[in-house]
């Protein structure tokens, strides 16, 4: 039963990685920018989730507010931070992004205090038994929520006209523009959706740990970078699978290798091993 329980834990953790990493890989696909500050939006999502839940008692409302505010802020970051420097070499945007991320952490420290905040009445903490394994309701919610959101995103991207155009723009913006696509609009949409998903991940992590602190984005930030490399940069499906794989590997790894390597070291050992064998990523084309 331990194996199954570890698998479930790994998939829950992997779902959270997936929600963060999808936005990152979308931005990379569209703009060839490593959007490090994305993890800062994840943190803000967590803060808004806790603050709104504590103020209103509704986790659902908190989730919606968090997605909207963080999504809009993601669009603002594109407009104010990236758009003016898009014609510069990629490292310029990378440096700007790292700077922004550090600034965001410091702003959270000033605004919300250095020690972090928690839910006054943490929701979804009850324990449920499914198929003989024990999970918290929050963990079940993470799994189901991720499925619903990613499923909706996949439907939008494959079944609607604008979704098709969006995927086309990610692979060749110039050609998409040749057929009348306003690529600025696509970029805004891209940042809104990616950032809103990161906000959901932030709310979920806050729920599982019952803690939001200024630096909670730092580990996810570099882990999400590892995941999008594993998934084949810009490849959404690869990123989702890589995120789930990493979550599961970490879950088993902490039990069997925990005495030698900690959780994050296991994740990066996995990254190094995979890239030695498949430099184009787990699912990328050569």
């Amino acid at each position: 039963m331990l194996y199954v329980e570890l698998l479930a834990q790994g998939l829950v953790q992997g779902s959270i990685y997936a929600l963060v990493a999808v936005g990152l890989t979308l931005v990379y696909g569209l703009l060839r920018i490593l959007h490090v500050a994305h993890a800062g939006l994840f943190t803000l999502g967590g803060y808004i989730g806790v603050l709104v839940t504590n103020a209103t008692g509704s986790l659902l409302l908190a989730l919606v507010v968090s997605m909207l505010v963080v999504g809009l802020l993601g669009m603002a970051i594109y407009r104010l931070c990236y758009q003016p420097i898009l014609d510069k070499p990629p490292y310029v945007a990378l440096i700007a992004s790292i700077g922004l991320f550090i600034a965001m952490e410091e702003i959270y420290r000033i605004a919300f205090g250095p020690y972090g905040i928690s839910y006054e009445n943490p929701p979804l903490q009850d324990v449920v038994h499914i198929f003989g394994i024990t999970l918290r309701l929050g963990e079940v919610a993470v799994g189901i929520g991720t499925l619903v959101l990613i499923g909706a995103l996949a439907l939008f991207a494959s079944k609607t006209r604008f979704g098709t155009v969006w995927r086309a723009t990610v692979t060749d913006p110039e050609m998409a523009e040749s057929f009348g696509v306003d690529i600025i609009k696509v970029r805004y949409l891209n940042f809104f959706i990616g950032s809103a998903l990161a906000a959901v991940a932030g709310v979920m992590v806050a729920l599982l740990n019952n803690l939001v602190e200024p630096t909670m984005g730092s580990v996810p930030s570099y882990k999400a970078l590892a995941i999008i490399v594993l998934g084949g940069l810009g490849d959404v499906r690869g990123t989702l699978l890589a995120a789930l794989a990493l979550g599961v590997i970490e879950a088993y790894g902490t039990i069997y290798l925990g005495n030698y390597l900690d959780r994050d070291a296991i994740a990066f050992a996995f990254l190094i091993l995979v890239l030695m064998v498949r430099p184009q990523g787990l699912f990328g084309r050569a």
Partner: peptide
């Protein structure tokens, strides 16, 4: 460029530059 196509200019460019992950149907949609 996106305004020029509305005026009636379309291009099949060098190297075709299709959207490789999109199906035939989806390429036509774009």
């Amino acid at each position: 460029a996106r305004e020029r196509v509305k005026k009636g200019i379309a291009v099949a460019p060098e190297g075709r530059r299709l959207f490789p992950d999109l199906t035939i149907e989806e390429n036509l949609t774009v």
